[in-house]
Design a protein around this nucleic acid. Structure first.
Lengths: 226, 226
DNA sequence: ACCTGAACACCGTTCAAGT
DNA sequence: ACCTGAACACCGTTCAAGT
């Protein structure tokens, strides 16, 4: 005979996977500040303190969330496309991830990329630069420049169309047209629908230059052979 | 005869200025999380609740801190240098500000730039683009691209040499040399002393292209005149 | 007009205890 | 091994009260 137990909650055991997934969902739906250990516990049908059995502290939970974000960034496999196009896809994918996770994305440029997971991606990206004929110094510079652009664009795009708690916005419309004529002229070009184009504009500047550099290096190498 | 009062604290009256200054100092010295209304009050010799007479909430305090940061970004006055060099100075100054305020800088790309103060700077920067002969669409794109680079670089530089609470870093040194050969080759080029050069590398790519665009526009204008 | 003091509804994290 | 429950030292913010 069955014991008179409370309605069986068929509780799956906790795991780092389940916890970080729930954490990302909370951040996506309710923002970074909404992620508290107590709320995270509630979502998982568990006391907050149970989480400490899987993560030493909240910081570790955030690192696990960061890992999930990194996991969404795609670099097409080697050989499937020219290296330059693989890298372009990588940059776009990075920004797309930012747009999918506007509240969580801040973790990417602020917390260090120090998981094995992100090292794996990092190494592959550097391989693509190497395939272009770039040495370590040049790879480092282009890698960072593209990263700067992608993070900066991600953050700015988010900031420009995400409501912020407790903000004290000064609305552009409150000024008469003579006050900030140039800002008013520029504003329509920076609306949500145009930000893709703005990002592509920046990307093209960098990639055109990369193309030229790669070409110059190949020609140099060709000459050396002869 | 004097009353037997406690040792007179010659307390200056509170003001938004004094409060935001103290807030920035706390963030600079102890990090973003250390800024609490209670601590801010203590530094100012006042109960935390007194602050609410000057700011509606903590968010407004942060906006005031942001305003102080914006105030440190320099755009040389019109006519003092060619527009392109004024803008280059602006971009460098933006990054320098990030390095001076590693803990506070995050406010810049995440909170909206919606104070009158920042609008004034914004308008002047756009004037510099206009002086180059750029229309609103092109100004918008270059302005953003430079901003992406400067914010991205600021954040990345900070992240790479700021200790983070509760991080779980995977140290590169723990792997044998065959595991991440390219990362290991690139790492020395991304150390603290080399990040200035990396930023200048990215800046040059963009500014060279801007120079070419400005020249092309001037030639076109010259032809139209004839 | 400006500040205080107590209170409310939260936090992250600790610790000893339960199964 | 895994989770609970109470407790500690904090938060931001409200409210009524003091001067």
């Amino acid at each position: 005979m069955k014991k008179n137990s409370p309605p069986a909650k068929p509780r799956k055991p906790l795991s780092r996977e389940r916890i970080s997934k729930a954490a990302l969902e909370i951040i996506d739906e309710q923002g970074m500040d909404a992620l508290t250990m107590r709320r995270l516990g509630k979502v998982l049908n568990v006391e907050a303190m149970a989480l400490y059995h899987h993560f030493a502290n909240k910081g570790e939970v955030l690192d696990a969330v960061l890992d999930r974000l990194v996991d969404e960034v795609e670099l097409p496999p080697r050989g499937s496309q020219p290296p330059l196009e693989r890298l372009r896809h990588f940059a776009r994918s990075h920004r797309q991830m930012a747009l999918r996770h506007p509240h969580a994305f801040i973790l990417v440029p602020t917390r260090r990329f120090n998981t094995e997971h992100s090292f794996d991606l990092y190494e592959q990206v550097l391989q693509a630069f190497s395939d272009l004929g770039f040495d370590a110094a040049l790879s480092a510079r282009y890698f960072r420049t593209i990263g700067y652009l992608a993070s900066g664009a991600g953050l700015a795009d988010i900031a420009s169309h995400a409501r912020q708690p407790d903000a004290t916005p000064v609305r552009l419309e409150t000024f008469d047209d003579t006050r900030y004529p140039l800002i008013k002229a520029v504003a329509p070009h920076l609306q949500k629908g145009n930000l893709d184009a703005v990002f592509e504009f920046g990307l093209d500047i960098i990639f055109n230059r990369m193309r030229d550099d790669a070409k110059a290096l190949q020609e140099k190498k060709g000459k050396e052979k002869r």
